[in-house]
Amino acid sequence: MSLISTAQVVLDLPPTDRHEATRTMAQTLVADGRCTDLDLFLDDVRKREEQMATGLPGGIGIPHARSAGISTPSLVFGRSASGIDWGAEDGPATLIFLIAAPDGGGQEHLAILAKLARKLMRKDFRQALTDAVTETEVVEIIEREVVNA
């Protein structure tokens, strides 16, 4: 299964806190079986956030966890017009990347997640995702820049 499909793109997250936003995004993983235990996964993500908030400068949030509740390495992309506080010093996050990895996942998939993490530091990549109009466009950008790069 690929890293992300159009079902895992949420272009207009409602204004809320980061835990609710994470739940909204994580729910998209349940429908097609990428996530087998939602509460366990949310718990693992929350633990990681409590260790150190994953908000980054430039309006980015990257909630993530390796969790037994996940069956396929997956990415959920969320966008919030008003921004959601993700603990970064310079303000709320408008681009949220929820990264879900299975406990002890295969090297090949972990390598793709590593590539994604590196791409997140690229301005042009972030700008393209900010400008994308449709879910299909988002998936295409990620497939082109990360999966097939």
Binding site: R48, Q51, M52, T54, L56, I62, H64, A65, R66, I99, A101, L110, L113, A114, K115, A117, R118, K119, L120, M121, R122
Partner: peptide, 18 residues
């Protein structure tokens, strides 16, 4: 980083770019 799937690689990219 603790989880080893995100910050590790973002930090590497940030350093190499800078």
């Amino acid at each position: 980083c603790p989880t080893g799937i995100a910050h590790t690689y973002m930090a590497a990219e940030a350093l190499e770019q800078a």
